[in-house]
Amino acid sequence: MSYVGPDFEPSQPRRPRRGPLTVALAALVPGALLGWVVYEAVGGGSGGGSDRTAAAATPSGTAPVPSSPTDSAAGSPADDGKRASKAPGPASLKGKVVVIDPGHNQGNFQHTAEINRKVDIGTNKKECDTTGTSTNAGYTEARFTLDVAHRLRTLLQKQGATVKLTRDGDSPAWGPCVDQRARIGNDAHADAAISIHADGSAAGNRGFHVILPGTVHAGAADTRPIMGPSRDLGTRIAGTFLRDTGEPPSNYVGEGTGLVTRTDLGGLNLSTVPKVFIECGNMRDSKDAALLTSDAWRQKAAQGMSDGIVSFLHES
């Protein structure tokens, strides 16, 4: 999602001012880099290789690697990957609600007027939705996200969770708009929500990143109540996604942490429930594209997301 659009304006990496959230995120850094090194060292990286330029992004901070992953109160991605593996068995999530948001829609290509309509995301107005990106061979982001969403739904339902999708199959024919996607999670009183995407950055840019909500308090948007739990959810997913897929953290955003904070995404700004985005890999890079188009790897991606969500729900 490296194009200009509602929830996908590319974020230009820059070194932001360090504030309270920077300090909080600083302790999360080692999990992605150190965790990957350990993972590769034991031969776990054979299933994956390494998600989307982000221009109007506002990363609220990523910081240098501290000396120990245990410095973080929320836990590092590597730590959370280990914790998730100890989660209780099937039907342990009975009563929990998870909303999965497969990014974009195949029908958006035929409904450009509808998806170009501006909607209010709290801080400003943006397009209802966009078409998404694709691999050079034409495998679309919309197909990828729905496939992974179906796999993730199956895994979570086996754990006893109630799962709702913002779109499924050919319904709706286009969209939904980004504000509607947030509303679906809110109306479901979701215990956790995840929006699934893949990037369209330049070749050579590889890896995944999880996008966390930044501080937004404007118009209809107020992310302050969900920032803490969303950060916890995103950190756990980053750890288990790394562990299960072998895909390393992004080498072009997030400074190697696998975590990026943004305030320009309507799907996060308007959410009242814990929610994150995940960019699973870069569709425009040949190595990442080979993974994203693999059935076996997409199953690993769904497993990585599921493990992180399960871990979060057991602790929340």
Rank of each mutant, 00 (worst) to 15 (best):
M305D: 06
G254K: 06
E279Y: 03
K118G: 00
D285P: 01
R143N: 14
S195R: 10
G246S: 06
D129L: 01
P213E: 09
G31M: 04
L265G: 03
R243E: 08
A289D: 05
V38N: 09
P249A: 15
A188D: 09
M283I: 10
G75Q: 00
S171I: 01
W174P: 05
F208A: 05
V178W: 08
S195Y: 03
P88I: 03
G175T: 09
T272Q: 15
K164H: 03
T53P: 09
K126W: 01
I211N: 08
D285L: 01
D222M: 12
L212T: 05
P16R: 14
D79C: 00
G31L: 07
E315G: 00
R52H: 15
G308E: 01
M283T: 07
L268K: 09
D80Q: 14
R181T: 11
P20V: 07
G185K: 03
T166D: 12
P176D: 12
D170T: 15
S2T: 15
T58E: 05
F312G: 01
Q303R: 10
R18C: 15
A113G: 11
R224K: 14
S60I: 00
A113T: 14
A301T: 01
R181Y: 11
K86D: 09
F109K: 09
P274G: 03
A190T: 05
E127M: 11
R262V: 10
T131V: 14
A203K: 14
L21R: 13
L268H: 07
Q303W: 03
T62V: 15
F277C: 09
S250C: 13
A289F: 03
I211D: 11
Y39M: 11
T154M: 04
A91D: 15
A149M: 04
F312Y: 12
G49I: 12
L21A: 05
I196P: 07
M305F: 15
G81D: 03
H111Y: 14
A63T: 03
A55E: 12
S171G: 00
D179K: 07
I121F: 09
T112C: 00
P90G: 04
A202T: 12
L313Q: 02
S76M: 05
Q180A: 12
M227W: 01
C280Q: 12
H150P: 00
S72Y: 06
P66Q: 08
K94R: 09
L155Q: 08
G219C: 12
A302G: 03
Q303N: 04
D288S: 08
D80K: 15
L25E: 05
Q303V: 00
D288M: 06
G103L: 01
D79E: 15
F312P: 02
E127K: 14
G256W: 05
L233I: 06
R243T: 02
G204L: 11
L146F: 06
I184T: 13
C177N: 10
Y252M: 11
F208Q: 04
D232L: 12
L25V: 04
V38K: 15
P59S: 11
S2E: 12
N186V: 12
H314D: 00
P249S: 14
R284L: 11
A74T: 13
H111G: 09
I211M: 14
T58N: 08
H209Y: 15
L34W: 14
A161E: 04
T145P: 05
E315H: 13
G47H: 13
K86G: 14
T261H: 06
G47N: 12
L165Y: 02
N108H: 02
S11K: 07
G31F: 05
G43V: 10
C128R: 04
A24T: 06
S195L: 10
K287R: 14
L155H: 00
M283F: 13
